[in-house]
Nucleic acid binder design. Structure first.
Lengths: 200, 200, 200, 200
DNA sequence: GATGAATGAGGATTCATTCAT
DNA sequence: GATGAATGAATCCTCATTCAT
């Protein structure tokens, strides 16, 4: 007697999730080109063939992983805008979400970096990432402009402040791999340290 | 009439430099695994075979490129220590060297990022990069500690400040590829914007 | 209440027939190597796994399909020999059976062609097909020789006449796929047209 | 010192020809789907990789082989039209070219059959073959119609006569593999035997 | 030194077949 | 009996590296 359709649905959903989880780790550390499908299969303890039951190609898995990471990294930025409080408090809240996220799930940030920094990334995906990058950047900038108006944020070209702020976030996401160990740190930095860059 | 030994030496040196220049661009944009030797050959307008007269392997070229980039990025940090002036002034000088360098030769920074972030990097090279990374990190930290003692730098855990400062630098080196365009900037940021993170 | 043994038998027989019918169509159009078991499963609306309850392998299905086609194409030739009337009348009767068969069930002829023309055909099957081919050929030849003796069939090397006659039949079986459309025909040709090749 | 460009041209042309020759044999006997690239490589005694220096894919090789075969089989038909003499003489000349061709190079005819009869054939190629098939068919028909007008060719629906004539040619091209042996023949049939189908 | 044809090991992907349910 | 998830051997193709010229 065959499995119920429902049981199959569940199996499929589980397997897809397993693959994405495992693949995220591998892609984060090796990039798209440097990852062998055998690596992914080993990481999720499946046969290599099964990967292709669930995804059409290695690029497809990568795309799905990056999309998931974009969701995870995009949502807090959108959410920050809706928060109550002053612009600076919104940025603070954002960092309170981001920084622990980087420390607990560095793969998500790394995989986006990989997608952004490599020309081997499928063009369509690259554009998606850039677009989101752009959206986030402009949300930062908007909050900075509002913060300047409110007297909470230092004066100066808001584009430059945005660049520095975004760089700090991205640099933390990429540096989290090695630096905490080298510096003897094991918790995410206090958001105030980063915010100090912007405050009067 | 055979070429003189001297002329041959010169040709060899030139060729190697051509290869490294071209390869740096390609590796910066595609990473080690994503770069094909054909890409490099095309970029330096040589035959693919010729690459192997000058280097033993693709990894070898990558290693040479990264070593060169490490030189370029390592020296200013060492040099900053020797500079006259206060700790903060040394950090300022460092940024005055780094930031324009990122804008004019982003490849150097990107290639180091690629080496650092990918597990496909040959282990020996990866260690070299980490070691240098570590060295730079501790120089930053030393200057920060001295700055705090001098009352120039904000109080707080120097390791955390170092982490944030290094992150900002690295984030700028990686963000320089896309963000300036997205934000309508075309010059490197004023060092003071970054320094503001550290100053009282 | 378990199904009766008898009912199971019937189901098994039905299923096998369904599979063979569907597989014949697919094999006829794609050949053994070009057909995927998924194609067959789709054509008979079963799960892929079920095919393997009824047949041991893809080759097994192919063999069964070809055997069935051999039956269908072999019997009329044997039967023609037993017919009353002159040798030419026997050949005419044969064409009267064959030609409409080609037009209504082209798959049977095509699948034999596929088996005959491809070295991917399992050796044992290939020999079966060749053997039958040989048997039919020699029946044609016998009738031609008898026809010549009776003055009904043109003089000339009977082997050559047989070759041309058989070629015409096989060519019709293979050309039926495209040519009738290209020539605006939609009924099988009059047997006399083919027989004219042999008649005085 | 590198090879001269001319020498490379020659090598490339030779290799391509070698591949096409060898591939024609293999494809003729196994079809597109049934042929492994390893088979082709073995047949032309090259490494498998080298095939892909010269052709982009297995399908590409197949296409090139079929195109060559189409040239070889198409030209005589066109040429027959230009011949001096009566329509029947033109058809006779055609057979005088075709039949020996089939006996000496059966691969050319078989490979066209494979392309025509299998749905695994790339669609574009399939259309090319059909188109040529159509062209030839209509040349046969034209000559038959003219022959009827001249009183050389039997009366009857010219489309049906064309069908039978074309079938005979195609059937010979496909039967040549096995039948001559089975019938003890080792020369192509006399064209008159085939022509008898059409003559009064 | 320089070229690019040639190799072959390795990688992504397919697909017949098995098996738990 | 029936399903479709799972496997893994085989296949097409890529690409670093070698080598004859």
């Amino acid at each position: 007697m065959p499995r119920t359709e429902e049981a199959n649905q569940r199996i499929r959903a589980e397997r897809r999730a397993q693959i994405l989880d495992a693949a995220a780790q591998v892609f984060a550390h090796k990039g798209l080109a440097g990852t062998r499908t055998a690596d992914i299969a080993a990481a999720c303890k499946m046969s290599e063939g099964l990967l292709f039951h669930y995804f059409a190609s290695k690029e497809d898995i990568f795309t799905a992983v990056v999309e998931a990471a974009l969701q995870a990294s995009g949502n807090p930025v959108q959410a920050a805008l809706q928060r109550p409080g002053s612009p600076l408090e919104k940025l603070r809240w954002l960092l309170q979400v981001f920084l622990p996220g980087m420390w607990s799930k560095p793969g998500y940030f790394l995989v986006i970096l990989q997608a952004l920094n490599s020309e081997t990334t499928p063009e369509a995906l690259r554009e998606r990432v850039l677009e989101q990058s752009n959206r986030n950047l402009h949300i930062y900038q908007q909050l900075i402009v509002e913060g300047q108006a409110a007297g909470e944020v230092v004066q100066g070209d808001p584009a430059v402040l945005t660049l520095a702020f975004a760089a700090c976030i991205q640099g933390l996401g990429s540096g989290v791999l090695h630096w905490p160990r080298l510096l003897g740190l094991n918790t995410p930095p206090d958001p105030e340290v980063v915010l100090h860059m912007l405050t009067v």
